[in-house]
Design a binder for these strands. Sequence first.
DNA 1: AGTCAAAATAAGAATGATTGTTATTATTTT
DNA 2: AAAATAATAACAATCATTCTTATTTTGACT
Lengths: 129, 129
Amino acid sequence: MKYSRQRELIREAVERSTHHPTADAIYQEVRKKEPNISLATVYRNLNQLADNGIIRRVAVPGEPEHFDHTMAYHEHMICTQCGCVVDIWPEKPLYEQFEALSETGITGYDLILHGLCRACADRNNLKQD
Amino acid sequence: MKYSRQRELIREAVERSTHHPTADAIYQEVRKKEPNISLATVYRNLNQLADNGIIRRVAVPGEPEHFDHTMAYHEHMICTQCGCVVDIWPEKPLYEQFEALSETGITGYDLILHGLCRACADRNNLKQD
DNA sequence: AGTCAAAATAAGAATGATTGTTATTATTTT
DNA sequence: AAAATAATAACAATCATTCTTATTTTGACT
């Protein structure tokens, strides 16, 4: 894997991100510093970074792929109201729960939880009072 | 929801299916009896049936949507070798495990387990002997 | 049975996310 | 510095899915 300025900018943009950006969001961000970068380059590098365990893919059904710079074990919840993706930090990895579910073994999983984010939950409570 | 011959054929095709067919697989199947049916009609009706709780959507990251006629609670595993989708029947609903993960509550989730299906596991063991 | 409004359809265009192609450029190795 | 390799920009292509529109079907009500 050779160095490239573009890949470095992409990696940094994911690193800086507070939300869980899509390829297009990263594209828009990196374009500020590298106006001629191609969207295909962003996709190629995000995939490469994910395949090399440097960033994490977050697959949300019915949405474009999201990406996450936090590699420490955690899960994701999508807000049913505003659509934002929030980190969920279980006390114990869910993986253990899943292992017993198949005789042939579980080697991995994709999980997206659904619920209200803090902001939406609070906003709803305010209106209701 | 008015009756339509097309919707009925689509529902029956999902009902008969042993795997977890995609919209296109259902389209190919229904076309045998209704050659002029449109793919858009298949999509529209699969969505309608799913929205009305008559069939279930099975979202597999990186693949077209699958559908399932079995409405009783169960999970899904995708075989990392052959790509087939198999039903997993947990003793207790995983939902309970997930509820405690968010202060704001969990209203649902999407889960796909990864592992080897029985057939692939057996095949691998044979070769290895 | 005949009329009407609502719902559904076929056909195909359009969309959106993602990947492929190719000629060129940048990076690493010799 | 030259050769070999990987990466890029530009843009075409693909794939799944949804949208549009003119037409047909269905179900309710005479």
